[in-house]
Design a protein around this nucleic acid. Structure first.
Length: 554
DNA sequence: GTCAC
DNA sequence: GGTAATGCGC
DNA sequence: GTGACGGCGCATTACC
């Protein structure tokens, strides 16, 4: 796609080169930007506008190899030519509007150089590479400087001058060990750690990435780290433990969590976190709002722009019609603390028993299971994830059957006082989301109920029990065999000639009776749910000679 | 932004 | 009024 | 240098 967009802006006159409307690193952003261009082109006939919008919005959903896309691109080319002709008339007021929308382009200089035919070696290099190469390098070296110094006190300066990638890949494990040692020397094992602060840091760092819409991959590091520490934190929160020592922290959080460890180290040694403490008031407020259910980066930004700084600001703003709070937001605010709190395994077991009991009593043909980390025997879960099947709902597209089944289930659970109408977040034919509470318990917990088409049940069990990396591996393995694995099943992949390149062809579903058969079909040794933990399955699959080259944790 | 190709 | 687009969570 | 990074169900809003 970049090629097309580049052609769109490259040969245009000066103003576009200086300030182009495409935001960085988001495909969706590219398309929105192009749409913006299109919308501002007031003279376009309405018909073209609509057709154009369809093309733009459908592009991200299509795979590259699709012939459909090729035909779309032909239309796209035409439209690009039109837009280009129009953009030749760009004036300063338009540029202001772009500025107001905070749009910018990464390598504007590269375009400029290309067009002017200047030699690539001079200005282009200097202006366009620092952002990627040197920027990352300096950030990394500053971050790791302490550890490297520790490892190589004599020649650390020279090493720092080398490219960062080399530094990182050749001695990564050494650096990790070095960090551990350096910290051990600087912090006493029995030093008391402010765990609440550490947890808050990890949470905010994760939210920060969500706010800036960067990929969730890195965020997962903070999330995982936070999960490692949660059992410790739970004891403190419950009053079972009065203080946490550094030794306990080191015990709980493995050294492979290098980025989280870097931040924790800063907090423990200097008492602050430079990344978080330098945030603007608005960004801090945005981070807080992000924690409310159904407030994502977009609404968070909008609410802050409307003047919200604390959770208490939201209600009044909504009353004055400055912002709109929907049902889910109100529930999210009311149960703010409960939604964030993880659920101890003992309570998950109680949920398991209560839900199964209620459903079996209502209809013995209902089969159900709790998924997610609970199924992998984790000691804490973030929510109650229930999947149900019944022989009355077989075909994925049979909304009628699904809806009536779902209504029955919800009715039963409401009758048992597990769910209530007031705390319903979402209630469709195939998916229910809301808050549940065990009778007599003071905390509400997030619950998701999903209906599986009858034959998809084992696939849903597998797909929703994780962990994420294992699913990535299995999906990739299926792809290599010309198959497609998803939560509904395993079947023949669509080819480039097909209309819809995602998913598998209907009618080619491999019917299985349990998860073991899915592993068999893919040629992988079976793993029990408990074994589906990266730390457990990775070494085992390595020994079994499974190709793990594209599974990357760090 | 970051990785594999 | 109906449909498309968007935001969100998982 | 270039493209992929999950895709889908649901609620709500934007748009005609």
């Amino acid at each position: 796609m970049h090629a097309y967009l580049r052609r769109l802006c490259a040969p245009s006159p000066v103003p576009i080169r200086l300030l182009s409307p495409f935001p960085r690193s988001s495909h969706r952003g590219y398309f929105s930007s192009v749409r913006l261009l299109e919308e501002m082109r007031a003279d376009a006939p309405v018909k073209i506008k609509i057709a154009y919008r369809r093309i733009i919005t459908s592009l991200p959903r299509l795979s590259l190899k699709s012939r459909t896309k090729a035909s779309l691109l032909a239309e796209w080319d035409l439209e690009v030519a039109r837009v280009r002709a129009w953009s030749a008339r760009v004036d300063s007021s338009l540029l202001e509007r772009w500025t107001a929308k905070k749009m910018c382009l990464p390598s504007v200089t590269a375009f400029a150089v290309e067009q002017e035919g200047a030699p690539k070696s001079t200005t282009a290099r200097q202006e366009s590479t620092p952002s990627k190469g040197a920027g990352v390098a300096t950030a990394l070296t500053t971050r790791l400087q302490g550890e490297v110094d520790h490892l190589h006190p004599s020649n650390s300066r020279q090493r720092l001058l080398q490219p960062s990638k080399r530094l990182f890949s050749t001695s990564h494990s050494n650096i990790i060990e070095g960090r551990k040692q350096a910290l051990t020397e600087r912090i006493a094992a029995d030093a008391v750690v402010d765990l609440q602060q550490v947890m808050a840091d990890l949470r905010d760092l994760e939210l920060l990435e969500k706010l800036h819409k960067t990929t969730v991959k890195a965020a997962a590091g903070f999330k995982d780290a936070s999960r490692c520490l949660y059992p410790l934190w739970h004891d403190v929160d419950q009053g079972k433990k009065s203080k946490v020592t550094f030794a306990e922290l080191q015990e709980a959080l493995p050294p492979i969590y290098s980025v989280p460890w870097t931040h924790i180290a800063e907090r423990l040694t200097s008492g602050t976190n430079s990344k978080l403490s330098t945030l603007s008031e608005k960004d801090k407020a945005a981070l807080l709002l992000l924690r409310v259910y159904n407030i994502g980066s977009s609404r968070s930004e909008a609410f802050v722009a409307a003047g919200a700084r604390t959770l208490e600001d939201l209600e009044p703003l909504a009353r004055r019609k400055k912002i709109s709070l929907v049902r889910a937001h109100k529930i999210g605010l009311r149960h703010f603390d409960d939604i964030e709190r993880l659920i101890p395994r003992s309570e998950m077991m109680a949920f398991d028993a209560a839900l199964r009991g209620a459903l079996r009593k209502a209809d013995p043909l209902l089969e159900c299971e709790l998924l997610g980390s609970f199924r992998r025997q984790a000691s804490f879960s973030s929510d109650v994830d229930l999947v149900v099947r019944h022989k009355s709902f077989v075909n994925k597209d049979d909304e009628e059957a699904a809806a009536s089944l779902m209504r029955r289930i919800v009715e039963v659970l409401e009758g048992e006082n597990l769910l209530d109408d007031e705390n319903r977040l979402m209630f469709g034919p195939k998916k229910y989301a809301g808050l549940a509470r065990l009778p007599g318990n003071k905390h509400y917990r997030r619950i998701d109920i999903r209906l599986a088409p009858y034959h998809s049940y084992p696939y849903l069990l597998l797909g929703c029990s994780g962990d994420a990396l294992l699913m990535k591996l299995l999906r990739h393995a299926a792809k290599k065999r010309g198959l497609c694995l998803n939560e509904y099943g395993l079947g023949e992949k669509y080819t480039a000639d097909d209309q819809n390149p995602n998913g598998f062809k209907p009618g080619t579903l491999r019917v299985v009776k349990d998860e073991r058969e899915i592993f068999d079909l893919l040629g992988f040794p079976y793993l029990t749910p408990k074994e589906r933990d990266y730390a457990v399955w990775r070494p085992r699959y390595e020994r079994a000679g499974v190709d793990l080259s594209h599974v990357h944790k760090l």
